[in-house]
Design a protein around this nucleic acid. Structure first.
Lengths: 206, 206
DNA sequence: AAACGTATTAAACGAACGTTTGAATTGCCT
DNA sequence: AGGCAATTCAAACGTTCGTTTAATACGTTT
């Protein structure tokens, strides 16, 4: 922990505090205190509070969409065009949910942050989706359309949209208290991935 | 506007400001100014800020779940047990989305508020769902299970959950900028309802 | 060792926040 | 009209907020 730079300590601490208390529940005073840094260090390293939040979000979103794109590319490499729908959905959904198990990276924390961001930082996220990550999203929509040729392109768009909603909602639930008591945490995550993929798959069938 | 009581003016104004700026973007100072009331009137009528927010949420949630329950009751009255799945989903989804068209009631505003609340007031909402509205939610889950007997009860639970996520996400999108330019607002809402119901229906098919 | 850019620190700024208080005002009842 | 409760109001309370400033410490280069 203390081996990290002040800047990284602030980023990690901010992520964790947002997950715990939401975007509205944080202040640079609480952050600097929890990160054991000085109050002014935040403005020194990030300019202002909003830019700090932006860096927290984009740091891991870049990683997430890179993984998604890479998994999709692997599928497009050597495939039989049809019946890979399940794999396409897996490539989109699994990286998000499995990030959660990535303990040493704080991925779980970020997923909760991301779910919160959909509501509290919607404008910023929407902007990212239509600029920085638009290529990957389009690539997935195309792949789904190719794998489900029985559906109109417009229908694919709508349902992909709804699936993203389900995924977002499922992620945000991991931060809530609705966890089953009969499963371990990772069992629950694995179960969620499977159920969500089957749900999405079914919703796109003929 | 001025025909309304101070209390109602505060409630409506709060709802509108939350929709515009989120829960974190409001203050009782801004509210009282926009509602053309006195600062202390809010604490007089509602006790404190959080209780005001609670009343904003519960006022319309009560209405929404009443409508849902009534529509489900109507279905359970005279039906042929099977194949009403579409109508059950419609009874759950449509009231939420059609509230949006209820201009004179500010229903659209509240839907945006509700979508925001899922992330920012999750604790409060989760508590309401597991207490005040738990009967209606259970009734819908049962109705879905009866209408889709080919699915395991556990599977129905998961997919109903995901459908709620899609609905929530769709609602929050109405507050964002992603609206098509080739449709009128109400056309877009109607289209959303139809697409969402078909999506949910397909996700629960054999 | 001196100089220099980078990083950290304590202190202060003005602004906005939620809440409380006590007096003024209103509307209703006898 | 008088009395009384409900409501509205201006003012102030103490706290917390994001940001800025100017001084200090650090680490590398010359």
């Amino acid at each position: 922990m203390s081996t990290l730079s002040t800047k990284d300590r602030i980023l990690n601490t901010t992520e964790q505090l947002i997950a715990e208390h939401g975007f509205s529940g944080i202040s640079i005073r609480k952050i600097s205190q929890a990160a054991q840094s000085n109050l002014a260090a935040i403005n020194y390293h990030f300019g202002n509070k909003q830019q700090l939040i932006n860096e927290v979000l984009e740091r891991r979103l870049n990683n997430l969409f890179e993984i998604r794109q890479r998994m999709l590319d692997d599928l497009n490499q050597g495939e039989s065009q049809a019946c890979v729908l399940e794999q396409v959905l897996h490539a989109f959904i699994a990286p998000a949910l499995f990030m959660i198990n990535d303990k040493n990276q704080g991925g779980k924390t970020f997923m909760i942050v991301l779910a919160r961001a959909y509501a509290e930082q919607g404008e910023h996220l929407h902007q990212l989706m239509t600029t920085k990550y638009t290529d990957t999203i389009k690539a997935f929509a195309d792949a789904i359309h190719r794998s489900a040729p029985h559906l109109a392109k417009e229908t694919v768009f709508w349902r992909f949209h709804f699936i993203i909603g389900s995924l977002t909602y499922a992620m945000s639930d991991f931060g809530a208290s609705s966890m089953s008591k009969q499963m371990s945490e990772s069992e629950y995550f694995n179960k969620s991935v499977e159920e969500l993929i089957q749900f999405a798959l079914q919703s796109l069938r003929a």
